[in-house]
Computed example of a mutant assay.
Amino acid sequence: MIADGLGRAVAFRIAPGQAHELPHAIPLLDSLPDVPMWVVADRGYTSHGFREHIWSIGARPAIPPRRHEAPVACPEWIYNNRNVVEMV
């Protein structure tokens, strides 16, 4: 699901059973009418390719790295507010 900054759903896709949602993330981003300023996601969406896609559309990724990965730029102040979306 993609939600706006107020937690309102903008777009969604349903993934089958135990399938990972990351393959659905890029088509969802591409379906948005405007380019978001930030794309905030949890560690499950950690992927160099996904981050590159976010940069290529003109947005900024706020996705923390997994524990075994090198640090990436992920502003704590923006990532900490992701609960607005997760609580919907």
Rank of each mutant, 00 (worst) to 15 (best):
R13Q: 10
Q18K: 15
M37L: 14
S56R: 05
E21Y: 05
I54P: 01
P23E: 10
W38F: 15
W38E: 05
A15Q: 11
P36K: 01
T46Y: 11
I14K: 10
R13T: 06
H48V: 13
I57A: 09
W55D: 00
I57M: 15
S31I: 05
L28W: 09
I26K: 14
R43F: 02
E21T: 07
L29F: 14
L22Y: 04
D34M: 03
W55P: 00
W38Y: 15
L28E: 07
V35Q: 04
T46M: 05
S56E: 15
I14H: 05
P27D: 13
A15M: 07
P33I: 03
L22P: 02
I57G: 07
I26F: 08
S47W: 03
I14A: 10
V39G: 00
R43E: 01
A15R: 15
V39S: 01
L32P: 12
G44N: 08
Q18M: 05
A59S: 15
V40R: 06
P27W: 13
W55H: 03
L28H: 07
S56Y: 04
H20S: 10
V40Q: 04
I26G: 05
V35F: 08
E52C: 11
P36M: 07
V39M: 01
H48I: 13
F50R: 11
L29Y: 14
H20Y: 10
P16H: 04
P16R: 05
G44F: 04
P27K: 12
I57K: 05
V40P: 04
G49K: 13
M37D: 15
S47A: 12
H20P: 01
D34T: 05
P23F: 14
E21I: 04
Y45P: 01
R51A: 01
P16W: 03
D42T: 07
E52Y: 03
P16E: 12
H20W: 08
L28I: 08
E52N: 12
P16N: 07
I57L: 15
A19K: 13
V35M: 06
E52K: 14
S31Q: 13
M37S: 13
P16A: 12
E52A: 14
L32G: 10
L32F: 10
P16Q: 04
E52V: 08
S56A: 15
W38T: 02
V35A: 07
G58C: 11
A59V: 12
S56G: 14
F50G: 10
S31W: 08
W38A: 02
R13P: 02
A41Q: 02
A25L: 08
G58Q: 12
G58I: 09
S31K: 06
